[in-house]
């Protein structure tokens, strides 16, 4: 199965919005990394990742988000995350990633933060 089909990209005001519609265990996490690295290769600067339909995320997926956020910042851009379920917030907090990546309650607030 190709989980990239469950990762939908759209654009609003020059910001790429990536909607994830699958849980992010290791298999989908490697696909997430590929999708994000494609965005880096396309020189995209501003990305919002909407996790409202995700009920599980593992450390590989969190690591991919953190890594791409760091690389985007080096080029003046950023990656922001929005709409996390409580258990996802706990995972980000446990790892400490919530101090590295900006997390917003809603997609609109993440977009407005750029």
């Amino acid at each position: 199965m190709d989980s990239t089909k469950l990762m939908k990209l759209r654009e609003e005001s020059g910001i790429k919005i990536l909607e994830i519609k699958t849980d992010l265990s290791s298999y989908a996490a490697s696909d997430l990394r590929k999708v994000l690295e494609d965005l880096l290769a396309e020189k995209v600067e501003r990305v919002v990742v909407n996790l409202s339909e995700v009920s599980h995320i593992n450390s590989t997926a969190v690591g991919a988000l953190v890594g791409v956020a760091k690389r985007l910042r080096q080029n003046g851009g950023d990656l922001k995350i929005c709409a996390l379920a409580d258990n996802l917030t706990r995972t980000f907090n446990l790892i400490g990633a919530s101090s590295v990546v900006e997390i917003y309650e809603s997609e609109n607030s993440a977009l407005a933060a750029f």
Binding site: N58, S59, T60, V62, G63, A64, V66, G67, K70, T91, L94, I95, G96, A97, S99, V100
Partner: peptide
């Protein structure tokens, strides 16, 4: 392991 590490969190979790 640090908050900005991309890998190495599994055992800690």
């Amino acid at each position: 392991r640090s908050p900005s590490s991309e890998r190495g969190h599994g055992i800690f979790i």
